[in-house]
Design a protein around this nucleic acid. Sequence first.
DNA 1: AGCACGCCGACT
DNA 2: GTCGGCGTGCTC
Length: 643
Amino acid sequence: MPPHCFMPLCNAALSLCGSTVLKSVMALADLVFPRKLKPLTYRIPAHMGRLRPGAIVLAELGKTVLNALVLDVFEKANGAASGLKLKEITGLAETKAALSPALVKLVKWASGYYMAEEGLVLKAMFGGGLFEKRRPRKKTVPGPVQMAPETVGIEEPALADGIAGNGYKTFLLKAPDTAFERAFAIRASKGQKGVVLLCPEITMIPAIEPLARNTFGDRLRVLHSGISQAARSRIFSEIADGVVDAVLGTRIAVFAPFERVSMIAVTCEENINYKNMEWLKYHARDVAVMRGYLEGARVLLSSICPSAESWANAARGKYQLIEPPPARKEFRLKTVRFRQADGKSEGCVAGTVRDALSKKVSSGGRALVIGSHTGHSVPLCEDCGHISRCSNCGLPLIFHKSGGGNLRCGCCGLQQSARSGCARCRGVNIKLLGAGTERLEEELKACWPVRPEDDKDGQEETKQAFVIGARPAVRSKKTGSKTPEEKFDIVVIVNPEGPLFKPEFRARERAFQDMCYLSEKIAPGGSFLWQTAQPGLLGNLKRLDYREFMDAELQERNSIGLPPFWRTALISFKSAPKGKFPDMPDVLFLGPVQRLGKKGAKSFSVIVRAKDAKSLKKAVAGYLELIGFKPGREKPVVDIDPL
DNA sequence: AGCACGCCGACT
DNA sequence: GTCGGCGTGCTC
């Protein structure tokens, strides 16, 4: 890059403006590289002229030249000795993309809020290349532009027009059903430019994409982690060219580099997939609200079962609640008490449940049975009471008949071969606990044709009369609502109270959400059966009344000092942190506790609770300073608002 | 990304 | 006591 060709122009500028002023100051820029780095200061070469924050430039980091974001531009007196020899910016990056002032502010906010380096924020936003064009593909297949079939019979909720307007405002839609929710989000963003539509997971995109195509046509782009870096870069430059009105995608789409955003819709806002677990532990819903604020945009959070956080924000007037009349419960919910009798020959399905299933299916109905886990069951020795447990996680191992019969851990995936008798006392009186999918299938197969839920969805097979599925172990990968359109005349859930006792404060909320989404699968006039050993433990869950449940839940969280009232942070260490916790008002330190992560990796974690986000940050920073993490021991990982 | 530096295991 | 693995930090 020969800079001499700019020299005449530069000299002319110097003589015009008066050299004394220009010579005494140095133009500087704070640059952020998409790495785990804080901003670094570089000199702006004179020939570059005015550089704006948000621009993407090339600069040398160590010995490699990388794309970097201009975070700040400032001047400094030439004489002021900083001791540091500053490098010069190499030049402008090839990309047309740049960050708007609001997006630059968002980088700074996220870095501060999540207590992470600005570079990590950037990496989470746009990847390690930062708009860098990777090898351009030979063929760029645009993909078939699929439009919604003209028979999409959902009347657009006219209520959505109430969202129209200028300036920042966040709405919370408590939707009567998922179809309504989607149609509402599309209707609310119709005719606008700079629209961001978020889905919690890639598999849910096809359900909205046709609707979005109908509204935005070829000015819509889809953005998620499955899109290659090259394709993403192309989309970013199309956004810079102004040919894109709307971006539909997963959590990364919340950072779509529009010059101006007017509307952000977060569908299924309670879904935990919005929380990013790598690099920067951001929550796309919370980022969406902050971006909306910084952009002066409308934000629509929606769900058939809103998170406690959002419901509380609506309750205190931070969000405006939109609550259309709830869909009439067109199904009967019944709890069936069933306790496995002693003796191994007993089944795991209650007679009344079996009868109900039989009746529905034989009269042409469809049935869905949700077991407590995949695999068969948990073997218990009735002689000595022994249960095989995972050496990593301590959880009971689940017996799988498929694959030759082995024991597997549902948490870390550990496998070991199963013995015929008790591993401890060699006893042969083995009782099988629990109702896994294999066991349910085995027990119900005799009566009806069964299709495991994860079968390939051949068009003919989708209408199978009988489906067996597992409750998602952790609601991360599968949300269970893979085919939300699919309806059943009878839905049975075995052991619905199980997840209530997981050691996390959101367990009740999660269980309630699961039941909400499951109830969406019931056809009008159908029935919902909960087979439980302890009906009393279900409490108000079994009324499936959102307001009743959530108001009670919030009251309890408030009284204990849990989110969304108090805020939490999780600090993870590789080795046990030493030292005491600092003494601070309105702050609670818990731990350190040893955690067993994936495949036996040990870590130690400390939980910090504080009355608000500000004091939480202060507490975490104070603690990290107290234990002296700065010189260069292993740096702990901080997760603000952990799940 | 690359390179420097440092701590712990193996060896002249 | 030294060499050198790679694990962790720094790069303006």
